[in-house]
Simulated assay, not measured.
Amino acid sequence: MNDDALANPAGPPDHFRWFFRGMVASVSVPGLILISAFVGFAGLAREAGVSVAQAVFMTGLVWALPAKVVLIGAIMAGSSLPAAALAVALSSVRLTPMVVALMPELRSDRGRPLTLYLLSHFVAVTSWVIAMEKVRDIPREMRTSWYSGLGGSLVVANMLVVALVYAIAGSLPPILSAALLLLTPIYFLTSLWGSAREAASHYAMIFGMILGPLFHLITPGFDLMAAGSIGGGAAYLLHRSRKGQSTE
Rank of each mutant, 00 (worst) to 15 (best):
A169L: 10
N158C: 13
E141S: 13
Y147D: 09
L154W: 02
P139R: 02
V155W: 13
G151T: 10
I168N: 01
R136A: 10
W146E: 05
T144S: 15
L154I: 13
G152F: 00
Y166H: 12
L164T: 15
Y147T: 08
L160G: 13
V162N: 02
A167Y: 02
G149M: 04
L154Q: 13
N158D: 14
G151H: 10
Y166K: 04
D137S: 12
Y147H: 08
M142A: 09
M142S: 12
T144Y: 03
Y166R: 07
M142Y: 05
G151I: 08
V161Y: 11
A169T: 07
V162K: 00
W146G: 06
L150Y: 01
D137W: 00
L160M: 14
W146S: 02
N158H: 11
I138H: 03
G149Y: 05
S153M: 12
A169P: 10
L154G: 08
M142D: 09
Y147S: 10
L164M: 14
V155C: 15
I138G: 05
V155N: 15
S148T: 13
T144Q: 15
E141F: 06
I138T: 05
Y147F: 14
G152N: 03
V165S: 00
V161M: 15
Y147W: 02
G149F: 05
V165F: 00
L164E: 11
M159P: 10
G152L: 02
R140W: 00
V155I: 15
V161S: 15
L150F: 01
S153R: 10
P139L: 03
V162I: 09
S145I: 02
L150A: 03
S145C: 09
R140H: 03
G149C: 11
L160P: 10
M159C: 15
R140F: 00
V165C: 00
R136K: 12
Y166F: 14
V156L: 14
R136S: 12
A157H: 05
I138Y: 04
S153V: 07
I138C: 05
